[in-house]
Amino acid sequence: MKDFLFVFRNDFENIPKGSPEELQALTKKWMDWVGGIAAQNKLSDRGSSLASGGKVVRPNNVVTDGPYTEIKELIGGYTIVKADSIDEAVELASGCPVFNYGGNVEVREINVM
């Protein structure tokens, strides 16, 4: 089996901002989805969500704030799964809760160095 990276991209304007109960229900959907992958023994790393702020480091030691709010899509987090092929990894990604609020999942094979 190979490892595949799921990169969760969120439409900045559609990131859920509901009540604590609504956010808890959304968290449960994520945990159930990830738990389903783990139950198949295909979870390599549960991953994490990412903070909205950060820094961008460029050549010549230039450091700026980022990511930029002008960008519509933000990377919200990641997970690493095991699959025999990219098609199987795509199938695992197909139930991701990020689709419920306009997001998407980028699926990339991880090349071992």
Rank of each mutant, 00 (worst) to 15 (best):
V112N: 06
L43D: 11
L43H: 09
Y101K: 02
A89L: 04
A93Q: 00
M31F: 13
L92G: 07
V7I: 15
S52W: 06
A83C: 10
N10K: 15
T64I: 10
G53V: 02
A93S: 12
Y101I: 08
L92C: 05
V105K: 04
E21G: 03
M1P: 10
D45C: 00
A83P: 06
V90T: 08
K42H: 07
W30D: 02
D32G: 07
G95P: 09
D84N: 14
E91W: 05
I15G: 00
E106D: 12
V90E: 08
A93P: 12
V56G: 02
T27F: 12
G66M: 00
L23V: 04
A25W: 01
D45S: 01
F4C: 05
G54P: 00
L50V: 08
V63A: 02
T27S: 10
W33D: 00
T27K: 07
G18W: 11
Q40F: 10
G47P: 03
F99S: 05
K28I: 11
K29A: 14
L92Y: 09
V57A: 05
R108H: 12
S94T: 08
I15H: 02
S44A: 15
I110H: 04
F99N: 03
G102P: 04
D87Q: 14
F8P: 03
T27N: 09
L50R: 06
E22T: 09
N14M: 15
R58Q: 03
I86R: 01
G53K: 01
G35I: 00
V57F: 07
I15Q: 03
F6G: 09
R46H: 13
G36W: 07
D11Q: 15
E73H: 03
V90W: 02
G54H: 01
S94V: 11
N104I: 09
G77T: 02
V107K: 03
